[in-house]
Amino acid sequence: MAILIKSCFVVVLGTLLGLALTFISLERGFGFGAVRAGPWTGWPKTGSADIDPYARALLSRTGAIPLGTGEGISFLARADSDGAPLNPRCEYVIKGPMPPARFWTLSVFTPNGALIENAAKRYGFTSAEILRASDAPAEIILASTAHPGNWLPTSPTSPYVVVLRLYDSVLSATAASLDSSVMPKLVKGFCR
């Protein structure tokens, strides 16, 4: 009888533990195949047939539709180049080289992937839209108040993440490891 009770206990507790482990591993985001360069993290394999089971489970839960490897690659930044999490009350500048790609887009989302409402109705930039100084790489300003130049509005109350997408880029096939020098920097500016 004692053994029966113990077995039941083990099965119930084991099931709970296993489900908790699944929940935690999905909460923490894609486990395998992540490529990091500076503040940017990409998951090149999620867009191919050899996507890992964790990424599949996560995508089925969130409903996100990642880019196919032949289409391009996307990178997510949750922190600045110093490793500090992005603070919605601070301004950031994205500057430096963009990796080679036919087009890139840069957009801001809540951590759950929703767009952030703003009066300017601007949710992202494409590489074609960017205003550039004649001989300097592009700079994009993330701020909750209006700025001249390439201003991407954020909300002072909503936490956000930055997504950089490289379309038709050689990186998507070769991004097993990445040198952070080819990726733009995310530099913290003024905080209110």
Binding site: V10, G14, T15, G18, L19, T22, S25, P53, A57
Partner: peptide
């Protein structure tokens, strides 16, 4: 049991 449930649930999701 925990490992089994974890693996099965990840694949089943």
């Amino acid at each position: 049991v925990a490992g089994l449930v974890h693996i099965v649930s990840v694949f089943a999701l």
